[in-house]
């Protein structure tokens, strides 16, 4: 039982990271039906910005987090304007392939300028402290990641449900043409979506750097793919779905490693993706709506 509880803690902290990345995927998909494969790499850029603001500028962790989120919000908007906007009326496959191109561009530009070597996140930015409660080990980092993830998700929910911008986002998501007729600037709303999604990815990047101590230019690929699975699991385009999907994914992986075999972990993760697509393509929270023709 004690081991099971420890595995739950492991799963929740891993899941919090997946959930944060999955939110960005889901938001962008909800608005413009694009799977932004560069999302994991924006997370990597966020981790690097966080790293440099701590290691070079000497800022504290909160300032580094905010700085990374702001920079990546700007990066997300720029990528959207340059790479995706010209293709908005093209086929979806064209935009998808461009997203893969942007992903590779971000990875290899980073490698070119910052070398492929891993960098060690400064430990002093957030010293580790372990709490032992009834034989369970919980670190302050576990708590920080979990609380921050929940907090950011709540803020996001608030923005989407209660603010004018959020209302406009939902409107664009439901019917972009009708939204234009209602006087909503679709371009602006899409920019805001990319900004928020990328800022969440940056937060996840800094957290990964903090949690695992190292960052490298290709760190976004695997977490990005897993978060994509999490978003599909919850129902892509649905925000609470991404949160639940992320946590489920983290717990699932942990349980497979802990009680099955660590060798089957990724096979199970991607097996789940295939199963969902076969049984309930709209995901756990998705509604079965017929496609408009």
């Amino acid at each position: 039982m004690q081991e099971f509880m420890q595995q739950m803690i492991n799963g929740l902290s891993l899941g919090a990271i997946y959930a944060l990345i999955a939110l960005g995927y889901t938001m962008v998909y909800g608005i413009i039906m694009l799977i932004n494969f560069a999302h994991g790499d924006i997370m990597m850029v966020g981790a690097y910005v966080g790293f440099f603001s701590i290691a070079v500028l000497g800022s504290n962790i909160i300032a580094a987090l905010l700085f990374a989120m702001l920079s990546c919000a700007a990066l997300g908007v720029i990528i959207e304007k340059i790479a995706y906007k010209p293709l908005r009326n093209s086929t979806r496959i064209a935009a998808l392939i461009t997203a893969i191109g942007v992903s590779l561009l971000l990875e290899y530009v980073t490698i070119f300028f910052l070398t492929p070597d891993q960098r060690v996140f400064p430990e002093s930015a957030f010293p580790l402290h372990n709490y032992e409660i009834a034989g369970l080990v919980i670190s302050n980092k576990d708590i920080f990641i979990f609380v921050l993830a929940i907090l950011l998700m709540l803020i996001l929910q608030y923005i989407i449900k209660k603010t004018r911008t959020g209302k406009a986002m939902r409107a664009v998501s439901q019917d972009p043409e009708a939204a234009i007729l209602m006087g909503i600037s679709v371009d602006k709303i899409i920019s805001v979506t990319f900004a928020i999604g990328s800022a969440l990815a940056a937060a996840a990047g800094v957290m990964i750097g903090l949690y695992y101590n190292t960052i490298n230019p290709l760190m976004g690929i695997i977490p990005g793919l897993k978060a994509f699975v999490a978003a599909v699991l919850g129902g892509i385009g649905i925000i609470p779905g991404a949160m639940v999907g992320g946590f489920l994914m983290g717990i699932l992986e942990t349980m497979v490693s802990g009680y099955g075999s660590s060798l089957y972990r990724d096979a199970v993760a991607f097996g789940v993706l295939i199963l969902i697509l076969l049984i309930k393509p709209t995901g756990l929270f998705g509604k079965n709506t017929g496609e408009k023709v």
């Binding site: 081991e3 420890q6 595995q7 492991n10 799963g11 891993l14 990964i208 695992y212 190292t214 760190m219 992986e253 942990t254 349980m255 497979v256 490693s257 802990g258 009680y259 660590s262 972990r265």
Partner: peptide, 9 residues
């Protein structure tokens, strides 16, 4: 990057 599940086992 995450080995905690297997390590707990």
């Amino acid at each position: 990057q995450d080995f905690k599940a297997t390590l707990t086992k």
